[in-house]
Amino acid sequence: MSHGNMNLTLKIWRQKSDKEKGKLVTYPVQDISPDMSFLEMFDVLNEQLITKGEEPIAFDHDCREGICGMCSMFINGRPHGPKRGVTTCQLHMRSFKNGDTIVVEPWRAAAFPVIKDLTVDRSAFDRIISKGGFISVNTGNAQDANNIPIPKTDADAAFNAAACIGCGACVATCKNSSAMLFVSAKISQLALLPQGKVEATARVKNMVAQMDEEGFGNCTNTGACEIECPKGISLENIARMNREFYVANIKS
């Protein structure tokens, strides 16, 4: 069994609710094991706070294996922390050094209002999906799954886009708080598949319109989203979405 050997200083954003102002509060933590995940380190801190009678820190998390997309901490100025290709729950304390000071904030974006502490409201993403991130096929409509062969390269590319976990790191890291990477990943996935082509025109127009309405910013191609995406969603998707968008507008 591992023993903790790291002492750290945490500066964590505390905010009672969306109506109140928040601030960074400093908490020392001792005896942290490098084998702990970042969230397990938070568990230790919360346990300490409860013992002291202080209210524990609210943060979103669920699967703790990097796939549900619920965890969402902005750590030392980077979404999901310093390591590339991982979510906060899969970030381990071995990525930090004894004595480090770590600043933890919520996702910052106008379209993601803070609910409490490190918890934000990402329901804007759901609303965008509900405008076109689907194929309109009712249960029972489907033909045999092998009736339409799909080239492996297309299927693989669609899968790579579909691997998006909807965490919002792309928005959090973007200086414009743009949701282009998220939206383009869904548009790409469906644009690459023959089943998705039928509704392609309406899809891109409706989803982009909703994205704008939610208050996400524009894309200025800085590429931070691709760097910070824990699932490696590629900027190519944004290019593909732009093409789809132009074509859709020309068609109408």
Partner: peptide
């Protein structure tokens, strides 16, 4: 078997072989 048909129709990118089949 119907489940696989339904999922593919709704755009689930299941793994495929080079011939395009699942």
């Amino acid at each position: 078997a119907n489940i696989i048909d339904q999922c593919v129709a709704s755009g689930v990118p299941l793994a495929r072989e080079y011939g395009g089949m699942l």
